[in-house]
């Protein structure tokens, strides 16, 4: 089973990198962008085949290492195969 984990800064947390990307987009003429938030993306290949067990395991990985929950939120997607 594959897990895709998106880690993003919580709303309200300053994201200077996102801001710099936003400014660069604007300077390229892409002025239809309201805001940019930069995050991280991880793909995990899991041995576990049970979705519920897999989600619980990845949750634990997120809270213990992958995300710093003081400033970051995470989203987990699971995919068979």
């Amino acid at each position: 089973m594959k897990a895709r984990v998106h880690i993003t800064l919580k709303s309200g947390v300053l994201d200077p990198q996102g801001k710099a990307v936003h400014n660069a987009l604007t300077s390229l003429g892409f002025d239809g962008v309201d805001d940019v938030r930069q995050g991280k993306y991880l793909e995990l290949d899991l041995v576990e085949s049970d979705a519920e067990q897999a989600r619980a395991a990845v949750e634990a990985m997120c809270t213990r290492l992958l995300a710093n929950t003081v400033i970051e939120d995470y989203q987990i997607e699971l995919e068979d195969g």
């Binding site: 300053l14 200077p16 990198q17 710093n68 003081v70 400033i71």
Partner: peptide, 16 residues
């Protein structure tokens, strides 16, 4: 801070 022995977190400097 990452180990949870101190509160808070250290992020990238505001001007990067």
């Amino acid at each position: 801070t990452e180990a949870g022995l101190l509160p808070g977190v250290l992020m990238a400097n505001r001007d990067l």
